[in-house]
């Protein structure tokens, strides 16, 4: 079977590109990331700036900010996560359909930042799996764009077909974030 030549008539079939399913799926996914702005503090202002005309996140195919988790696949956690808010973030994350990614924007979302206090979760990765961390307090819009491009590179390396068939564990927090 492996050496069999497949007959192909370009007049009938048109032009064909031969590739891997993973490459196609990832290419589609990476250019249509729909972020969900989880704006919790001042980082959200920079996130808004990144969405504005000056920095223009749409150049990279991920400008469709959706405020419903059902319509988004990338949560941008922008700001300080308090313990009171952690529950909400977790629930919203769970409401997002697979595949989904998380960007921890800024020092607070990444590690609690300067808030070493009783009220602040010391990094959103304790409650949801994070794909990309951005340093800064707050990070500039360029840093966010860089992180989103890094996320696109990461998406390109995913084994999407394999993941499609894989049964997800009940507890996605302990899943290796692909």
């Amino acid at each position: 079977m492996s050496h069999q030549i497949v007959g192909y008539d370009s007049k009938v079939e048109g032009e064909v590109i031969i590739t891997k399913a993973d490459a196609v799926i990832n290419w589609i996914r990476k250019n249509s990331v729909w972020p969900m702005p989880m704006g919790l503090a001042c980082c959200a202002i920079e996130l808004m700036a990144a969405g504005g005309s000056r920095f223009d996140i749409s150049r990279f195919g991920m400008e469709v900010m959706r405020f419903s988790p059902r319509q988004a696949d990338c949560m941008i956690v922008a700001g300080t996560v308090t313990y009171k808010m952690a529950e909400v973030i977790r629930r919203i994350y769970e409401q997002m359909g697979d595949p989904k990614w998380v960007v921890a924007m800024g020092a607070c979302a990444s590690s609690g930042g300067m808030y070493r206090s009783y009220a602040t979760l010391q990094g959103v990765d304790r409650i949801i799996p994070v794909d990309v961390y951005i340093s800064g307090c707050p990070p500039r819009p360029e840093a966010l764009l860089d992180a989103m491009i890094k996320l696109q590179e990461k998406i390109m390396k995913e084994q999407s077909v394999k993941n499609l068939l894989k049964e997800l564990p009940d507890n996605p927090i302990h899943r290796d974030s692909v």
């Binding site: 313990y83 952690a86 977790r90 629930r91 070493r116 979760l121 409650i127």
Partner: peptide, 21 residues
Amino acid sequence: PLPAADVAEQTKVKVAAAPMM
């Protein structure tokens, strides 16, 4: 304990003393 019992159970996260380093 974390405010939401189900989230706490899933994530095994508690409201912990912040690392003062």
